[in-house]
């Protein structure tokens, strides 16, 4: 019963709490979106869940266990993987090295090879570029490496922070198509996006964040028709 339960969290930087009293749940195997415009606090929420940012209030539970005191790598090892904003890849390492780096702690060499093959099957472009330095890849390919690296940790929850940002529609299509193939095998998804239309089409349920507070939640299909969402995010 792996699910993520975030209860009444607040977090921020300096004196300002940019996220206030946010609660959300990602049940096992579900695809959830967290949408909101620029600076709403989406990345801040992601960073409190993966541990890069300290919580100021509330609680985060994973599999029924509080994880606030766990360090970043421990949360990853517990099954929560992040494709972070800015990707945070290892630019001077090759594609393969980037993938292997995320599996050294958990998998013997033979299994790693198999995990890499799974990633290459998902993004066949990466197979051709396996020995290329990641810093020299296109933005889309780098995003694929970032997703691949997260998958190498064998997550049960995958959090993606704006995977579509700055990419051509065709590449975005490729990536979202791959994400579609991933889910359904028990992997939960927390998709963070500014692109409301795209993300609501790809998930089951969604939360709408505005200036650090949740203002709406519900079925993705219902939200697409919701007057507030249409008004604020879909241009009327």
């Amino acid at each position: 019963m792996s699910n993520l339960i975030v209860r009444g969290i607040s977090a921020g930087y300096g004196k300002v709490n940019v996220v206030r009293d946010v609660s959300l749940t990602v049940p096992e195997g579900r695809r959830i979106a967290l949408v909101g415009s620029n600076g709403a606090g989406k990345s801040t929420i992601v960073r409190t869940i993966n541990g890069l940012l300290a919580l100021r209030g509330g609680s985060v539970q994973w599999d029924g266990v509080p994880i606030e005191s766990m360090r970043v790598h421990q949360r990853t090892r517990a099954g929560i993987a992040t494709v972070p904003e800015g990707r945070l890849l290892f630019p001077d390492c090759t594609v393969t090295e980037n993938l292997v780096a995320a599996s050294t702690w958990g998998q013997p060499k033979i299994e790693r090879q198999r995990s890499i093959e799974v990633v290459f099957d998902l993004f066949s472009r990466l197979r051709e570029r396996s020995a290329q330095r990641v810093g020299t890849l296109s933005g889309g390919e780098q995003q694929m490496v970032a997703i691949g690296r997260a998958l190498m940790t064998r997550p049960r929850l995958l959090m993606l922070d704006e995977p579509s940002i700055g990419l051509a529609p065709k590449v975005v299509g490729e990536i979202f198509e791959a994400l579609g193939r991933l889910t359904g095998s028990g992997l939960s998804l927390l998709l963070v996006e500014q692109n409301v239309q795209l993300s609501l089409r790809s998930v089951d349920c969604a939360y709408v964040l505005r200036r650090g507070e949740l203002v709406l939640e519900g079925n993705a299909a219902d939200l697409l028709d919701h007057p507030f969402v249409r008004e604020a995010y879909l241009g009327g």
Partner: peptide, 17 residues
């Protein structure tokens, strides 16, 4: 090398910094 190139990226990859 990973930690040197991105500390947070390494931690998110499960590496014990």
């Amino acid at each position: 090398r990973a930690v040197s190139q991105s500390r947070d990226g390494a931690a998110l990859s499960g590496i014990d910094i």
